[in-house]
């Protein structure tokens, strides 16, 4: 996935994407910050790219909101540490969670260098405003994260955030040199989060 941050200036620009994601995936809203569940959310530059922040970052980037989500890493540490293969990498590269199998040890949360994972500290159902019957909720005691809309990809649709992005997000097969994402990557300078860790994030940012 490539995120063109030039087209997403303010938090308002990100809202439709976050909203649709929360809605179709039955993501609860908790009062207690400790219990928060986040799949797709906004962060400032210094949090999105910690230690990559130049001293004199230009004003636009400094106050901008960046879209934050699971990086579906090529060498995903969460997959490496999972003791039950509840987190696994699909052949197409998507890192998925099998909620049926997760024992809730939260090793994956410690392993993820991007803070992309959330844990169900309690039953989420009473905290879901409007339930989408086409997608399951989660049960207490399992970890969850962005699934790149695997359920939509299965029926030939684009991830919901991509669809709601007005062209700011490009999604496709990074291994296919003719794909739309590769074309965008070829013609733009992009950065990734914490590249030095060798995890190989699949989410690129045009800044």
């Amino acid at each position: 996935m490539v995120i063109d941050t030039r087209k997403l200036q303010s938090e308002e620009d990100l809202e439709p994407m976050i909203e649709v994601c929360d809605k179709i995936h039955n993501i609860p809203k908790f009062e207690n910050k400790n219990h928060e569940i986040k799949w797709l959310w906004a962060e400032e530059f210094k949090h999105e790219f910690p230690m990559q922040e130049p001293d004199f970052l230009n004003d636009r980037l400094k106050h901008m909101s960046f879209l934050t989500l699971c990086n579906h890493c090529e060498k995903a540490p969460c997959v490496r540490v999972c003791p039950t293969k509840a987190t696994f990498k699909r052949e197409d590269g998507i890192v998925l969670m099998d909620f049926h199998r997760c024992i809730g040890c939260r090793f994956c949360m410690a392993a993820c260098p991007y803070g992309s994972r959330s844990f169900n500290f309690r039953d989420p159902r009473p905290f879901i405003k409007e339930t989408n019957p086409d997608f399951p909720t989660r049960t207490k005691g399992v970890v969850e994260k962005c699934n790149f809309c695997a359920e939509r990809l299965a029926v030939g649709k684009m991830p919901a955030c991509v669809e709601a992005s007005n062209g700011a997000l490009t999604f496709g097969d990074l291994d296919d040199s003719e794909s739309e994402v590769r074309k965008v990557l070829r013609s733009n300078y992009t950065i990734r989060r914490k590249p030095a860790l060798g995890t190989g994030p699949s989410v690129f940012y045009i800044v």
Partner: peptide, 24 residues
């Protein structure tokens, strides 16, 4: 370890799906 698990009833999954890549 047991009281820390979110889904303690599924603890045998560690044996049912042995994952030598996990330090746990």
């Amino acid at each position: 370890i047991f009281v820390d698990l979110g889904q303690p009833t599924r603890v045998v999954n560690v044996l049912l799906h042995p994952s030598p890549n996990s330090v746990l």
